[in-house]
């Protein structure tokens, strides 16, 4: 950590001791959420999410492929996230770091576990199914990539139009049908800094953060969770954060509706 980050991180801790955040948000408030869909015309679906100063872009491509032998009637969905070197000074080119791999796998996990995309609806004909590739690019980092990437992936999926399948190939010129979406998974990630717990951490807050907990829900049940970093949570803290997560689900959904079409 550079010298400035150290200073900022002690300032964050000092503020939290008084129950305040550097941008005067409440402990469990998201920053301003802005979702724009359909911004990459060539892709089957796309979305850009601004969460405060964090900006991520998700694109969806659908490719006809052979099904896995154990699930011959189901298609595939593969969500991955990538930290682009242009998103922050500390990001470098080269193979993905453990942090990037964790992010990618957690974003994939919730959407997969919730069955947001009905895999059976991706069946084309015997020996052919759609594989749905969702790639999330981090363009500017200012904290809370877990929630921003999940929002972008989900928003891009709700924006997706399926190509037609004819003569053994995808016809990307005719994309009429919407990709059927069963449910929308939202992600809430909490940072524990000292004894305080806050939602939607900024980069400065993440420098001071001891532990992190991501909870993903479809509004009905918890779909995925991931605790990160060296700090710990008590079970009563986790119970409380699950309640917050369900409350926030509705708020985040309202942003999806607002920006849909």
């Amino acid at each position: 950590m550079d010298a400035l980050s150290v200073v900022k991180s002690s300032y964050i801790k000092e503020l939290l001791g008084k129950g305040e955040r550097e941008d005067s948000r409440g402990m469990f408030d998201f920053r301003k959420i802005d979702i724009k869909t359909g911004i990459i015309g060539q892709a089957e679906g796309s979305a850009q999410v601004d969460l405060g100063n964090t900006r991520v872009l998700a694109g969806v491509k659908m490719v006809p492929e052979e099904p896995h032998s154990d699930t011959p009637n189901e298609g595939n969905i593969i969500v991955s996230a990538e930290l682009l070197p242009l998103a922050a000074v500390e990001y470098e080119t080269g193979p993905p770091s453990p942090e990037a791999i964790e992010l990618s796998r957690v974003v994939d996990r919730g959407i997969r576990a919730a069955g947001s995309v009905d895999l059976a609806s991706l069946f084309i004909e015997e020996g052919k199914v759609w594989s749905v590739y969702v790639d999330v690019y981090v363009l500017n980092y200012d904290g809370n990539l877990f929630d921003a990437c999940t929002m972008a992936a989900m928003a891009a999926l709700t924006d997706t139009h399926m190509p037609k399948y004819s003569d053994g190939a995808a016809d990307y010129k005719s994309r009429d049908a919407d990709l059927p979406i069963k449910n929308i998974v939202t992600s809430t990630t909490f940072g524990k800094i000292g004894n305080s717990i806050v939602l939607d951490t900024t980069a400065n807050e993440e420098n001071a953060m001891d532990a992190r907990l991501t909870i993903q829900t479809d509004g009905e049940v918890i779909r995925a969770m991931q605790k990160g970093l060296k700090g710990s949570f008590s079970t009563s803290e986790i119970d409380k954060l699950i309640d917050v997560s369900f409350d926030k689900h509705k708020d985040v959904l309202s942003h999806f509706k607002k920006h849909k079409k």
């Binding site: 009905e220 995925a224 991931q226 949570f233 079970t235 986790i238």
Partner: peptide, 21 residues
């Protein structure tokens, strides 16, 4: 009894989660 690792996928209601923990 603090939680140092927690990963989950699938589906848990709040009540089922409490039971599991």
């Amino acid at each position: 009894s603090n939680v140092l690792l927690l990963q989950m996928d699938g589906g848990f209601s709040k009540q089922q989660f409490k039971e599991a923990i």
